[in-house]
Nucleic acid binder design. Sequence first.
DNA 1: AAGGCAAATGTTTTT
DNA 2: CATTTGCCTT
Length: 719
Amino acid sequence: MDVTSILHNLNAPQEQAVTSDKQHLLVLAGAGSGKTRVLVHRIAWKIQVDNVSPYGILAVTFTNKAAREMRERIDELLGMSLRGMWVGTFHGLAHRLLKSHWRDAKLPENFQILDSDDQLRMVKRVMRSMDLDEQRWPPKQAQWWINGQKDEGLRSAHIQEGGDLYLATMLRIYRGYEETCERLGVIDFAELLLRALELWKHNPSVLEHYQQRFKHILVDEFQDTNAVQYAWLRLLAGKVSAVTAVGDDDQSIYGWRGAKVENILSYERDFPDTETVKLEQNYRSTSNILLAANAVIAKNAGRLGKNLWTDAGEGEAIALYSAFNEHDEARYIADRLHSWSNEGNRREDAAILYRSNAQSRVLEAALLQAEIPYRIYGGQRFYERLEIKNALSYLRLMLNCHDDVAFERVVNVPPRGIGERTLELVRELARDNVTSLWSAAVAMVTEKRMAARATNAIAAFIELVNEMSGQLDELPLAEQADNAIQHSGLISMHRREKGERGQARVENLEELVGACRNFEAEDRDLPVLPQFLDQVALDAGDRQADEDQDAVQLMTLHSAKGLEFPLVFIAGMEENLFPHKRSLDESGQLEEERRLAYVGITRAMEKLYLTFAETRSIYGTESFNSVSRFVRDIPKEVIEEVRIQNTIARPTSYAAGAMRSDQGDETGFQLGQQVNHNVYGEGVILNFEGNGPRARVHVSFEDVGTKILILASANLAAV
DNA sequence: AAGGCAAATGTTTTT
DNA sequence: CATTTGCCTT
């Protein structure tokens, strides 16, 4: 491969970024400006032109999906697989480091990862042992607080004693939690990063090894790095490595979970000899959409400042629909999607975005009624489901019966007569003897310290796990998993469960066996089960299984980041909903909401609809919200209001009745169609009302605004 | 120890 | 409004 193919089709700033030979590089990449492209091509450039060995390159992303995509695209561009190059998430890389240097990191060799669900259980346990009132101190809040501290790199020992009662209590919980994790040899997600940082801080020789190796470091989504990740990066880079950071301060929407946009601002200071390149040409959207996006984000202070522009035409206006209520809003969207689909477009090219998951219900109902297939992103992910986590706990116990987290989780699932009283005895013994729960349980059985019934129940559980782990080395992974769900009784428990939920759980368990069958170990020479469990702990899998059907996509604005769709609806453009009510007290939070609006708008390629409801029932009570300030920030020239006057909440028959006429199969016209009227001139059809000869049509005329006409007498002509 | 009922609670999400 | 959580009863 020659140089020209790497630079082929890059614009000037992109090429500048790809070929920059300053020590460090900061790429400020606006939405849709070819960010990943630059990253991938820069890696290719280094390998092909600068003769850098893939072994010396480290590429960091935030999600597993992004990591996979990056590797794929590099492989594709270079036409070969890059062995030796490290590509992964911050957490994945930290895990890898801690696995290799567990002794230096002061961890047990087979340390386990706690996901947020496990973490919450653990926090609850600690709080209970401290006799804290869970009403007064919600465990969720404590968990949140602890993670917040860890994201800042603060251990309990670093935090000033004293302060108010709240702080003192949180600190006490933090201490107890830290101690318990230490004792059990488990680490949570934030700990993964913090430990990896401390590993290097406290072991200069280990750090030096990696500094020697990784002379080229590239970071994607740089605006999402937190304090620990930034410190980790600086440490690794040292004085000699070359760092490329790619990000967009305007798309920083994860401040609430510790991300620091400021990292972008301090980059040029902390990494001297930096070249900064701005990518402002957008290859995604029409200029009308960009005009709106730019206008919204312009209101934020302290931006690095970018202005997206495009070669593309201005495209269609942004439609603004003022709905009567949320049902009307949903019906309108379903309606437009119906037309979209009828015009021969793919449904999967359309997305409905919203601020909070709760909004999806009404939208789903409307889509269901209109018989429009949809796919919803959100909710639980595969490996986070209760039944899956239970099955995995059995697998973990098979591997290591001293895994207390797994033990606690499934010792009485399915119910086998081991209740809270019995368990408390086991816990106590474990605490006194400083052993695992498993060892304590074994001791209690052999020493017959409890009632016969409890002893038998525990003995049966021990027997079960022993039996399953006995065949560990003989069987392939999928059969291990199958054994686990069969023998443990998990699957029959869910079969007995009535309703769809039980069936779904059975199917999920079966799917787990399938996933085990498809699992490919990274290192074929090592046992497969631990590798599987680690992978699953770091990547909770997809949210949605079936990808086969052509379906409209529903998701939150947050999960839409990084995606693009020809047709986008943003629903619920109302004050208090978006920007969310709870973000209005602090100004920093409002700026983040604004960035979220910017992210949402820039998802749209061709057509953007913004909708809001004048009345919306929220938690059962009606609320009246005015249109979102973000809508008001968009220049009037690019907005086309779709306002249906004198049309109040039409009866439920609307969807069935009017929908048909919306297709235009009876009228000869379609929504959005250009028409001519002999008095009013040219206009666009916005809506139909009713059926037959008395059907009325709403037309937005260029000169006189929106008029409602009787279709039969209006004598409209198609343009 | 398990099932039923009342009360609380409800941004955003990855690892 | 709808779902989840915890408490209470059997």
